[in-house]
Amino acid sequence: MEREVFGVDSGTITVAHELKAPLSLMRQLALSIELEQDKEKISYTADRIVATSERALKQVNDLVKVARLSDGLFEMEPVNPRRICDEVVSELWELFRFNRREVISEYRNREKLVVANHDLLYSVIYNFCLNAMNYSGEETPSEIFINNTKNGIRISVRDYGPCIPTSIWREIRQYGASRPLSTAMRPGSSGLGLYIASRFIEFMNGRFGLIRHRDGTSFFVDLPISKQLSFI
């Protein structure tokens, strides 16, 4: 049952909490610079502040996009999923390296275009990858796969972190991530990134899902292929 506190729904509380966390962390990191004399450590901390603020800004931007999905700002067009995955890997590579993590991609499909919005699909894969980075260890890379399906393609991102609780898995299978899951799915997660991804996927007429592995989770999006020929 949805819990309301003075007219504020639990989803809003989850969002507020999720955004409060990076703000308080940035404050602590900035204050801790004063205690540090080692230039290398100061530079490291400054990089962490930048990385934390960028992630928070990206999340705020995505939330604004969720609120504006019906404004007709996001056109559907044929896009190349491989290229978008490569763009995401390229942008996140430094962040993965910074966190001593690795991301690898494996494309098993023929190069096909899908019907999607470039920015929204980029955000979906970005959120999946950040989620995977958060839960993968140093020894286990996060993996992006593109596979053919019956009527389209599947882009999935696999991690080797703790499994999602069965109750949450069932809820997502049945209803999708229709709200931020304030019960928290895994350590450090409110499910906000997945909620954002699922809204974008729904807008693009795709299908959002997840697969529980014995040693981790894959989040995926299924999208219809475009009949337009790829000239790329």
Binding site: Q28, R48, N99, A184, G188
Partner: peptide, 12 residues
């Protein structure tokens, strides 16, 4: 449970 905070403690 927040990785960012654990990194902060590790350094502090």
């Amino acid at each position: 449970d927040d990785k960012g905070w654990l990194d902060y403690y590790r350094n502090l």
